[in-house]
């Protein structure tokens, strides 16, 4: 196994903790739906897994593309809808 990839993972966790603790409670719901959309990055993996002539794997890939796209599109859209509502006086 490539140790670099583990390094990236660990460092990303630290970055995540650092930036997310700065998000105020007011925005925790948009944070959740937004991070949800980001976890839709699985769509990248789904695209790769639809390799031509991949048999059953391709169809799992298709289902994965659907699930992940729901996440990405729905997640970012609903977050935007919520954030639009936060107004100053």
């Amino acid at each position: 196994m490539d140790i670099n990839i583990l390094t990236v993972f660990i460092l990303a966790i630290f970055v995540g903790v650092e930036i997310i603790t700065k998000v105020p409670p007011t925005l925790h719901t948009p944070l959740m739906s937004g991070s949800n959309a980001i976890s839709g990055i699985a769509v990248v993996g789904a695209i790769i897994s639809t390799e031509l002539n991949g048999g059953v794997g391709s169809y799992l890939g298709l289902l994965a593309v659907i699930f992940a796209t729901v996440n990405v599109v729905g997640g970012f859209m609903v977050t935007d809808r919520m954030l639009k509502m936060f107004k100053r006086k």
Binding site: I5, V8, I13, V15, G16, S35, I38, I41, G45
Partner: peptide, 17 residues
């Protein structure tokens, strides 16, 4: 998949949750 994009994003979301 040895894919940094998934690893970094996953770590961010995991930490957030």
């Amino acid at each position: 998949l040895m894919n940094n994009g998934l690893i970094i994003s996953g770590a961010l979301v995991g930490a957030s949750g």
